[in-house]
């Protein structure tokens, strides 16, 4: 085995910490580059890189689930949305600046305040920090007995703090409603046009090869979230990514003929309902809302069923809302192009 691991220490710093320093350094550089780049297309790509670096940093910090989410959501969906917006609004930024003095003042105020707060923070990585002493040990040492899943993050996410996750699913749904209200429902009849990438044979072939494995991977992430990093959010986003890829290569109309707007609206509502109904079922069984023990005779089995269903609900809502949002942005782009 190579002698490069977390055990290796260079001058009192272990290698994880060195990687941490380098990654965060990169992050600052990228952030500065975003600030000073005048071309918005370049800034958008830099935000993608920024998200990917953040994801890398999260892996170093042991937050694999978060890293997964950040990579798929931040570097994937957010960047695509930004690019489609820029396509509609133009790539150049006006160099004029507003409220520079007030801005600097506010920014410095916040900075000083934070620096002040850092002074008394527990030392980074210290295992005796209050954060690790109170509630966390319960999750780490009891979750196997109470919920029976190796991935503690999934246990906390879907069961201990399942209500937060419900709220989060609703947030995603709300964003879908918002985008639909702002961009959607225009009576835009797509004209039969050639697909945008019809002449890109290589892209078409490669994406045809890639899309089935992406779907497969999404399903794996969805149902393997109990044992490894992953879960409904990541799976939903990956699933959506496959469809977004398909519609970018083969045209929005083709994708829409497979997944129509009414269907996708229905699904986005269905996911939230599924999550809520799991909670209602536990209510009707005489337990508290979202108490999965009520779902089966054996509480552990109940937890398993509950988490499976709930993650499925999350996955469906996230996937359909992401597709919905992308479709609405993309059809705007098509509309503007037709007008030209």
């Amino acid at each position: 085995m190579l002698n490069v691991g977390s055990h290796c220490a260079i001058g009192g710093l272990n290698i994880d910490f060195l990687i941490n320093i380098v990654l965060l350094g990169f992050l600052v550089c990228t952030a500065l580059a975003i600030v000073f780049t005048k071309n918005l297309l370049a800034s958008a790509m830099l935000t993608g890189i920024y998200s990917l670096l953040t994801a890398g940093f999260f892996v170093v910090m042991d937050a694999v689930d978060v890293a997964f989410t950040e990579a798929s959501v931040g570097a994937g969906i957010a960047t695509i949305l930004m690019l489609s917006t820029l396509k509609l609004t133009g790539f150049d930024e006006d160099p004029a600046r507003h409220n520079v003095k007030a801005g600097l003042l506010a920014v410095c105020g916040v900075g000083v305040l934070l620096l002040y707060g850092i002074v008394d923070m527990p030392v980074f990585g210290s295992p005796t920090a209050p954060v690790h002493m109170h509630v966390a040990p319960h999750y780490i040492y009891q979750s196997m007995a109470e919920i029976g899943m190796p991935n503690i993050v999934t246990s906390v996410l879907a069961s201990y703090r399942g209500y937060d996750t419900f709220g989060e699913t609703v947030v995603v749904f709300t964003a879908g409603i918002g985008v639909l209200a702002l961009l959607g429902a225009s009576n835009h009849v797509p004209q039969s046009r050639v697909a945008p990438m019809s002449q890109h044979i290589i892209l078409r072939v490669v994406s045809k090869v890639l899309i089935p494995p992406i779907f497969l991977f999404a399903l794996y992430v969805q149902f393997h979230g109990d044992y490894g990093p992953g879960g409904g959010f990541q799976a939903g986003v990956i699933f959506a990514a496959a469809i977004i890829l398909y519609s970018m290569i083969f045209g929005l109309d083709t994708a829409r003929s497979v997944i129509s707007q009414p269907l996708i609206r229905l699904l986005s509502a269905f996911g939230v309902m599924l999550y809520g109904c799991v909670g209602i079922v536990s209510l009707l069984n005489g337990h508290n809302f979202l108490d999965y023990s009520a779902l089966a005779h054996d509480p552990l089995h109940g937890q398993h069923y509950g988490i499976l269903l709930v993650e499925l609900g999350v996955g469906i809502t996230v996937a359909s809302v992401m597709i919905l949002i992308f479709f609405n942005f993309a059809s705007r782009v098509d509309m503007v192009q037709e007008e030209q």
Partner: peptide, 28 residues
Amino acid sequence: SNPLPHVLILTAIVVGVATMALGLALVV
């Protein structure tokens, strides 16, 4: 490592992208 902040931030990331999507729609 402590799993609780991971859960919270998973939520916050999704909230962030939701806000971003809505903001971009407004910009359009």
